[in-house]
Design a protein around this nucleic acid. Structure first.
Lengths: 115, 115
DNA sequence: GCACCTGGTTACCAGCCGGATACCGGTTAG
DNA sequence: CTAACCGGTATCCGGCTGGTAACCAGGTGC
């Protein structure tokens, strides 16, 4: 999941910053904790994840809830607005997989002009 | 058209680089010349437009045609692949205008946490 | 007492992106 | 001859983005 060969690298369609799209995907099926998010988003550092989550929060796409229990616990979940983004996100993914071949071809064929 | 208050600034959905989405919109209704593109894209410099067009070309979304007439003439138009992007682009615009209010509210309401 | 887990923060840094400015070769208009 | 238009390129620069490394406070396990 989300390895370096992910189609999202090739697609010109982007949601928010580098990680935002994947974070939203991770939250698709319910709230997740900070450390739970770091697992699927392999290689993301704490700082960058925090950064991205804060931006999503500021834009009203994600809600942060800190539970006051004895042990520290923070959960992130999609707001209704964030959830509504899943639709265009799916559209974007559909487009990318539909035109996957053409995207690859275009990248690998600088033949039409020098170099 | 494409003034600084454009919704695209607020929407988290992006197509390619800063100008790519607008360029594609400009080419929606047929081929356009370099200088014709500079008009609606107010403020874009030649370098940046060239840059953006070259990227679009490399990715197979836009085709460049130089006509060999006595006077220099270059036209850019969407490839079928580029044209197929109009669909998700429309979806993105639809989402943005549909959630316009919420986007504004989110931006202007840092009230839920300090500062 | 000590290490460890959780959920971060604080420098610091390299690379890219967009922009400003200047320039260019070819053609046409006056 | 000169100026202007077309479609760029060359160079420089500041700011943002994403990443690394170090550190931290609070609570838990041994």
């Amino acid at each position: 999941m989300f390895d370096p060969l992910c189609p999202s690298d090739l697609s010109p369609i982007r949601i928010g910053d580098k990680w935002a799209g994947m974070i939203i995907r991770c939250l698709e099926h319910g709230p997740r904790r900070f450390s739970e998010l770091r697992v699927p988003l392999r290689g993301i550092t704490a700082k960058v994840l925090t950064q991205s989550l804060r931006t999503l929060e500021r834009n009203g796409l994600v809600a942060r809830t800190a539970y006051a229990g004895p042990t520290q616990r923070v959960e992130y979940e999609l707001t209704p607005l964030g959830r509504s983004l899943l639709e265009p996100l799916d559209a974007a993914c559909a487009w990318a997989s539909e035109h996957w071949d053409e995207l690859i071809d275009a990248r690998e064929a600088p033949s039409s002009f020098a170099q």
